[in-house]
Design a protein around this nucleic acid. Structure first.
Lengths: 207, 207
DNA sequence: GTCTATAGTTAGATAGAC
DNA sequence: GTCTATCTAACTATAGAC
């Protein structure tokens, strides 16, 4: 790893624990093992380190999307059609993968926590955080469940309420087990339980 | 209002926007209209202002609890018995009241946001936040729904999954509409929708 | 109980030697 | 591309006049 990469690495770790504002350039430099002044040979400001992290994450999210076989976020119609054909077990597996990606992936989990911490102090971060973890998730799944209802895979008449019922527990559990890495098994068990309850409700004879 | 009270008031507002660490004693003093040094005649440290806010909130939460007719949090058996006898409409009304309390009550909403912001940097705040907005809520409602199932008011076989299904959307919506006071009507509509969907699922013929 | 003044510390960032 | 030294600004907190 180059010094520049190590700076990004240590900065993300610190930002995800103490927040952007709570982390000093000196904190980062200390972790890297150089003087704070030396850091400015690699980045012209603290903000530039942050921007580099955000860029890196957008690359990784696209990779994740491709790896999990997700359709382009911007093409909801395509998404609905794709998911309209998958089984509930596949949906369960997918939820688990995405949950674990944000909870455990070494980069994504720190990135998510950094956004969660910093959303309140920085309007730009606030928009990014809401965009990814609230609006996009709900919009996406509303279209998905709408299609699945139409195809008779799920019962229901309010796709958006379904989307919130599906996603809110995932959001809640992500927040709850965020800082408790030793409880990963418990977290996964809780997730499994919620998704099974969701499937039980909307599948089959649920009214 | 005494100067001391005005300091607490302005401090809470600033802490709820910028966090504890993001707010300087000078920021607070400026809002109150005194010099930062003068503030030390009222509080011996910035931390003491924070502690005063936490104490004040615990008093207000007890008041709220009494006003809404909630049983003692520590006595879940009592809670279950009480709620085991109420109707679903009463439960809906209660959810709405508590949601609005944390979303709109001038003190509680700022307090909640302050905890949400500061939970990541301060272990003590982290415990308080989780205690109130995650663990207590779920434990409480698990007992409640267990009792309601036993009494035949609700259908279901996993009270804890029900509790998460009930509470996670509230938690999600609180987080989503937190910083968007102009969207209060939308927030309330979304809450109503979720609670109605919840009642539809577990009441009557839901399997 | 307010003020001015200031101590002591830490922050982000730059200059210049090597 | 690392270092030492330093600048400027902001921070928490204290001393002492009024």
């Amino acid at each position: 790893m180059t010094t520049r990469e190590r700076i990004v690495e240590e900065a993300l770790t610190l930002f995800s624990i103490q927040g952007y504002q709570g982390t000093s350039v000196k904190n980062i430099a200390d972790k890297v093992g150089i003087k704070d002044s030396s850091l400015y040979k690699h980045f012209s400001s603290k903000k530039e380190i942050f921007d580099t992290i955000v860029q890196e994450m957008s690359v990784r999210m696209e990779e994740m999307s491709r790896a999990f076989g997700l359709p382009d976020e911007k093409n909801l119609a395509e998404a609905a059609i794709l998911y309209g054909t998958i089984t509930i077990d596949q949906l369960l597996g997918l939820s688990r993968q995405i949950f674990l990606f944000y909870l455990k992936d070494e980069f994504a989990s720190r990135f998510r926590r950094m956004l969660a911490i910093e959303q309140y102090r920085n309007r730009e971060i606030y928009e990014v955080y809401r965009g990814i973890f609230m609006n996009a998730a709900i919009t996406y799944q509303t279209a998905l469940f709408g299609e699945m209802i139409q195809r008779g895979i799920f019962n229901g008449h309010d796709p958006e309420a379904m989307a919130v019922n599906f996603y809110a527990p995932i959001f809640f559990l992500l927040n709850k087990y965020d800082q408790e890495p030793q409880k990963e098994a418990e977290a996964l068990q809780a997730l499994e339980r919620q998704i099974r309850e969701f499937a039980r409700i909307y599948q089959g004879t649920g009214k």
